[in-house]
Amino acid sequence: MNDTVPQVSYALTWRDTFARWALRWDVGRNRAAVEPGLYRVGEPGSDSPVFATANYRMTFDLVRRDLGGLDAWLLVLDTNGINVWCAAGKGTFGTRELVNRAIQSNLSAHVSHKTIIVPQLGATGVSAHEARQAGGFKVIFGPVRSADIGEFVAAGMKTTPEMRAVTFTFVERLALTPVELVGAFRGWKAIVPLALLGAGWFLGRGELSAAMQPALAYVAGTVAGGLAVPAFLPWLPGGAFSLKGAFAGALAGAAVSLALGAPPLAFAAGTLLAAAIASFVGLNFTGATPYTSPSGVEKELRRALPLQAAAVLLAGVSWVVQFFIN
């Protein structure tokens, strides 16, 4: 019977590593789903632990790597190629899929127990008491990070407070920036700097530095919101992401405008535009953080969006006024 269950390797190949880096840049997203079902890790027996995970390739790869040295079963749920936490939020990594996947994969033919270790962040979608009612399964919530699995198992399937707390370290935040930046310049958003270049060329009467100033202020604002906000998150002032973004953007916009020798009104316009753009892009980063509440984001949006729009408008007016002053 065991022969029918595919074996996974602990070792990640250079292809796996390359795929993970590509995914960080939002490349290969549509090929990132792993076949759901039951997998063997090492040489599991009927009393070996069962770990549940999502069928997003990056998640699957990191989990099998971190299971290194253990003999276990890996139950991969169908989450449409989405990571555990996001899928749990949407309910695809949920109680029903867990129970159904366990039954469909014929789990009971391979293991003699009914315990399934679910990653803690899956608790948003998986209800332990409902899984017990629905299929007699005993759900144990494991650590947040797969890297802690070894320690969790060694401790007798118990998590420590550290294992249960999400983190958002500098490295973790930086890993999310490529996808933010790619997203900020994709599609119609790629046209904005070009349009601003055209407007700048007209308003600057063909003078190079004046022509480039609006477009570069926009790019500076986007980079400030998409890179500086994530990187310097704890050190930027305020709790609101729109405020952190506006601060970083204003600095970036002022620096670019100053470097281009912009006259006072154009300097103000460049600073305002970059602040508004960075505020908006920074606010969008809330979706990638592990600590922002929807109630908070909504409150922040209601206040920030009108101000951002007003700042963009004021920046445009300032550039036009500067044009007539010249």
């Binding site: 770990f51 995970t53 997003y56 990056m58 998640t59 990191l62 989990v63 971190d66 990571n83 555990v84 936490w85 996001c86 939020g89 990653p119 803690q120 962040l121 899956g122 494991g142 650590p143 947040v144 990070r145 797969s146 890297a147 699995i149 999400v166 983190t167 958002f168 490295v171 973790e172 935040r173 890993a175 999310l176 979706g287 990638a288 953080t289 592990p290 600590y291």
Partner: peptide
Amino acid sequence: CGSDSAAPS
């Protein structure tokens, strides 16, 4: 949602 960065299991 920030969870990939932490490589949740």
